[in-house]
Design a protein around this nucleic acid. Structure first.
Lengths: 113, 113
DNA sequence: CAAATATATTCAGAAATTGATATATATCAA
DNA sequence: TTGATATATATCAATTTCTGAATATATTTG
């Protein structure tokens, strides 16, 4: 089980446009490095760098098939997060009833706005 | 509705240990800046900097009560994300059946592992 | 073994992030 | 008005992250 700090670290690693695209592809199925080269407009070394980061954090793994490295998702948090990112929110949270007492207590003078 | 890029940007802003703590507190209710000074071991300007970032991204807002600024959550994505972070995962995702064909096709030689 | 393919690693410079310090602003109390 | 309180902003140095280029490694084919 991951600590809170580790989960935030995961979130930080995932929160990158290229890496999200990689993870979205992997959520659909196994892909090798050169597969990514086609739809990400990036050079191979850069893609390998992103994959290495994801590997180092236990987010993805791979098996070797000849000279291909076939990557796949291992962290179950990822599909849930991707679903959450796809979700549409049509309303903001309700504003708090005006004006709750903070820990400091109600300000002693008159209220202004 | 937010674009995919905007959501990833949000994720990036949220993925920071101090800001997560701030958001967890705000998920419980309204808090003013000096309330945060007590349980985050940070100086006031630093807290204000984090709050400004959250504000600039439409994640939080505040109302003014005397000289206090009372912050609250406005982005409905945040509580969902915090719930997801609390969730425990006890198993990794199942490994893919060995060995799926990638876009490149099955490697023409013998398979190794 | 040599060449080709697929991928990883290393390194350097640019850009972004972080937290600190100093200072500014706004509100209220006396 | 003066001082105190609450918060924001500006600036800066240290650190981290990012991307690309060059190079290395591993595997397979011929």
């Amino acid at each position: 089980m991951l600590s809170s700090g580790q989960k935030i670290e995961l979130l930080k690693v995932i929160a990158h446009p290229v890496r999200i695209k990689i993870l979205e592809e992997l959520a659909k199925g196994v892909k090798c490095v050169s597969d990514f080269e086609e739809f990400l407009e990036l050079r191979q070394p850069n893609i390998s760098q992103h994959l290495a980061l994801l590997r180092d954090h236990g987010i993805v793994d791979y098996y070797i098939d000849g000279r291909l490295r076939c990557y796949f998702l291992v962290d179950p948090f990822v599909p849930d997060l991707l679903d959450l990112l796809k979700k549409d929110y049509h309303q903001l949270l309700p504003r708090p009833a005006c004006c709750p007492v903070t820990k400091k207590g109600v300000y002693p003078g008159d209220r202004k706005k």
